[in-house]
Design a protein around this nucleic acid. Structure first.
Lengths: 357, 357
DNA sequence: GTGAAAGCGCTAACAA
DNA sequence: TTGTTAGCGCTTTCAC
């Protein structure tokens, strides 16, 4: 281990009491210049070794890598970013981390991003247009691309931002912007089919927030399916996409009950069930309810909730794949959204229709 | 709108078919030099205007800001980072985003970080020591500090990293490293007290993962409280901190039932309830169960779960406050952990003890 | 295949 | 208070 003697004194200096070295950037972290000097090559060669392997003789490269390892060299991301103008960061925007729907999306995004060598920056928009724009504005200059997971911003605002950085939108279609969405029409259709097969002739749709693109899609899909399947659908809402929203929906529903109910999402469905159960209405005996999303809690409540499972992890990873392609130079395809399939999870909150409650 | 004529031709060029302008860094984004020139000052003055307001004449500053606004100047974070060596990014490490326990922590961290002008980078360690180290290793060079939300790494590994960047640990105490933890001893004590008051004389503790620092704390707290309160405690485990873990725990518990059960966390409690209910055991009539954490689903299950609420949002924000102080130069205080209070939520899964089931 | 040198955009002494 | 001048560490032509 008789190293290059140049190292001697410096190492020695380095080993003063660690207490002295307060946390922070390592003073004198080795740079390409240090490596270059020890390896007896030019800095540019060291740079190439790490940024363009292959553009350098494999023997010199080996030597350089060895020296780098010995010196503990790590390429400085900021310096690299300054000259290349990309950071290997992507922003993931979600309206509310607290909403169980996003966990899996986050996971999908994380996984795929990690695989592609990107780090993700979380932007929580707190369900607010303003917050979302501000937070995004702050993150924008440091990221290479953006995944918009269910945005609350206007199409115009979204397009504005998409002009500045590659972007892909989840759970929403915005013209000219690549997007990936679950197969909502199919989802609500399956839900309605299921209820129809169980003999329900009229079902109530507990609608989501007015601004929700997905809600529009679902309601439309429901109406279309309604015709084909000759099941009547009614609509209550708009409702907040939460347990509280479901409770509010229940109040309205009690005025004019139906034997079947399809909710905007699982949270609403759960709120609805609790509220009607509290009034003595039995689920599924008196009313069958179908949720949407298949969140974790759907399988925990009593009765367990029949629901349309959206492939949220797939949504997240598909989005990142698309984004990475864009960042690698592919032109953003303004085509139709990528749609990923959904699946009906039949559980215990639905049963054959009996008489009107 | 007769702008500076210099802009004319370039703007024109800029408005060619948008398809041509592939997404990416705005070509020729204005720099401090552009602003300086137009404002008739030196670049350094522009720099100061934004990085050290106050160190520049307020009139010139106004003028500069005006020009900057007109030109659409935005300071380049990468360039700034390169010369200052800090990025205004902090890393938040959580073992599993999917675990409901972390949502609120994430929120607390996000809020406090935003307030302090930091952006958070999410590092999901997938409950794996390896993954955590790798991911952290990647994020390390670009962040100014780290919040470790329930780490799976060894104390030594943690200390290693803390040498490089300011850090604060949540849910765990590591010597020499600032940390913030919930009042676990108090939490389990309250749980046991509650059960004791209800007449339970023997309770089973459904233990968490072996590697869990919190589990150790809770078990220890339980044993101590057991003496004082003269309630017998038994232990089953280690168990995975999941619904599945709870189901496994139920199997063991059925061999030797007790009228009271305290679970490592809510997920375990929920799994336990489901499993014993499936065997015909009634909750709370036959067995009272207390969870830990008060996750969202705790109030959704049947019966709703009595549980110890940990102030997770407070945990997150306290951690960031401490971290920011460190990054601002305060020496990391190796003192005792900051402990935040917990609270017992009495719901429907606990009731007076009857005979042994 | 490798080296020399010019930036990337900003901050930070040091002068004036 | 403001200007001048070096860098920060890396990438990237352009020669050799």
């Amino acid at each position: 281990m008789a190293d290059d003697e140049h190292e001697g004194p410096e190492r020695g200096t380095d080993s003063v009491p660690a207490d002295e070295a307060r946390p922070g950037p390592r003073r004198g972290a080795p740079t390409i210049y240090d490596v270059a000097q020890v390896a007896g090559v030019a800095p540019s060669t060291v740079s190439r070794t790490f940024s363009r392997p292959g553009r350098v003789n494999s023997e010199t490269a080996d030597r350089i890598r060895k020296v780098a390892a010995e010196l503990g060299y790590r390429t400085n991301p900021m310096a690299r970013a300054l000259s290349t103008t990309h950071t290997n960061l992507i922003a993931l925007v979600v309206p509310d981390i607290t909403n169980p729907v996003y966990f899996e999306i986050i996971n999908g995004v994380q996984d795929e991003a990690a695989e592609a060598g990107y780090i993700v920056v979380l932007v929580d928009s707190r369900e607010s247009d303003r917050q979302e724009r501000d937070a995004l504005e702050r993150a924008l200059p440091i990221v290479d691309g953006i995944v918009l997971g269910t945005s609350r911003m206007s199409d115009a605002a979204i397009r504005m931002i998409a002009k500045q950085k590659p972007m892909v939108v989840i759970n929403r279609a915005v013209r000219e912007i690549p997007s990936v969405v679950p197969d909502n029409p199919r989802g609500v259709r399956r839900a309605l089919e299921h209820l129809g097969e169980l003999g329900h002739t009229t079902v109530t749709y507990l609608a989501g927030p007015e601004a929700s693109w997905a809600d529009g899609m679902r309601w439309r899909g429901l109406r279309e399916a309604s015709l084909e399947l000759s099941v009547h659908v009614r609509r209550i809402g708009p409702l907040a996409p939460t347990v509280a929203g479901g409770i509010a929906g229940a109040k309205a529903w009690l005025q004019a009950p139906t034997t079947g109910v399809i909710a905007y999402n699982d949270l609403v469905a759960i709120g609805f069930m609790r509220a009607v159960q509290a009034r003595g209405v039995r689920v599924p005996e008196d009313v069958s309810v179908v949720g949407y999303d298949n969140i974790f809690a759907a399988d925990l409540v009593t009765p367990s909730l029949t629901t349309v499972a959206t492939p949220r992890r797939a949504l997240g990873s598909a989005a990142v794949r698309n984004l990475v392609a864009q960042m690698k130079g592919a032109h953003p395809r303004g085509g139709p959204p990528v749609v990923v399939p959904v699946k009906l999870m039949e559980r215990s909150s639905t049963a054959a229709a009996t008489e009107q409650p």
